[in-house]
């Protein structure tokens, strides 16, 4: 097992079915440390289902998911988070009724040890821990550029800031692997580019491995080390961005058979 310890994530034969529909079928995926890996595919390709399998919301019917060499499928989401996988959501899910700082502090939950009794007595350990969590949350807010709105209600933030808050909250869980579900959804090209730059920075500065979901493949090409393409729950291609980009199956999946022919014709003309 020693070699697979070096892998951050190793999924083999992961299958998830909903009734007769196979949302993810027999998917293999390997993520190396410090990589930015992407899962792309058209809408409904099973990308988010795959994410939910990793983060514990779904239990795959078949296959195995190993994180740092240990199987994690079937564990509850909180246990998986405690092991070092954090995620964000395609539709932003912040805790309504809590402030920005509190939202991030919830992320520190697994790293804190206080119990109600300790809380009541406010033991020195407890107070220190609470202060440390607060300072840490504030530092993370500073990192994503939200340190001036810490006392706002999270749901009052504008859309782009909510996205960054979600990332800060995920970072507060002290993850090894960060799962980002369509982080650029609803952004304009300029914002998208900034976000991608930010993701790269996260990887470099925070010592993270990142798994990214995107349906727009042009977005991830620039920064991904490894791209996996899904269509109808099946992996149709994987490899470096350049390899995937030229795979006819991928082009067909995105543009349909007719579109792929057109593109091929265009390419010929161009050549």
């Amino acid at each position: 097992m020693s070699e697979s310890r070096d892998l951050i994530l190793e999924a083999t034969g992961v299958t998830k079915r909903f009734g007769g529909l196979t949302a993810v079928g027999d998917l293999d995926l390997i993520i190396q440390p410090q990589q930015i890996a992407s899962v792309i595919g058209p809408n409904g390709a099973g990308k988010t289902t795959f994410f939910n399998c990793i983060s514990g919301f779904y239990t795959p019917e078949e296959g195995e998911i190993r994180f740092l060499g240990e199987p994690i499928q079937g564990l509850s989401p909180d246990k998986i988070t405690a092991r070092g996988i954090a995620r964000t959501y395609q539709n932003i899910h912040l805790f309504a009724g809590m402030t920005v700082l509190e939202n991030v502090m919830v992320g520190s939950h697994t790293n804190l040890t206080s119990t109600p009794v300790g809380t009541l007595l406010r033991t020195p350990l407890n107070a220190r821990e609470e202060d440390a969590a607060l300072a840490r949350a504030y530092e993370l807010l500073g990192y994503v550029g939200l340190d001036s709105v810490g006392d706002w209600l999270a749901t009052n933030l504008p859309y782009g800031q909510q996205r960054r808050l979600e990332i800060a909250r995920a970072l507060a869980t002290d993850p090894v692997l960060l799962l980002l579900d369509e982080p650029t959804a609803g952004m304009n090209p300029q914002e998208t580019e900034n976000t991608m730059h930010f993701i790269q920075q996260l990887r470099d500065e925070r010592d993270l491995t990142i798994l990214l979901i995107e349906h727009d493949m042009s977005v991830v090409m620039g920064i991904s080390d490894h791209v996996t393409v899904l269509d109808y729950g099946l992996k149709i291609s994987e490899g470096t961005p350049a390899h995937v980009q030229n795979d006819p199956l991928v082009i067909e999946a995105y543009l349909g058979a007719a579109g792929a022919d057109d593109l091929a014709a265009d390419l010929e003309i161009a050549n």
């Binding site: 983060s55 989401p77 959501y89 509190e102 502090m105 919830v106 697994t110 119990t115 809380t119």
Partner: peptide
Amino acid sequence: SRTGRAWSAMKSDEDIAQSMG
């Protein structure tokens, strides 16, 4: 406290709270 924040998160969205640990 940590407990109170967990409750508050749970009140807002159980599933997301769980995925935050």
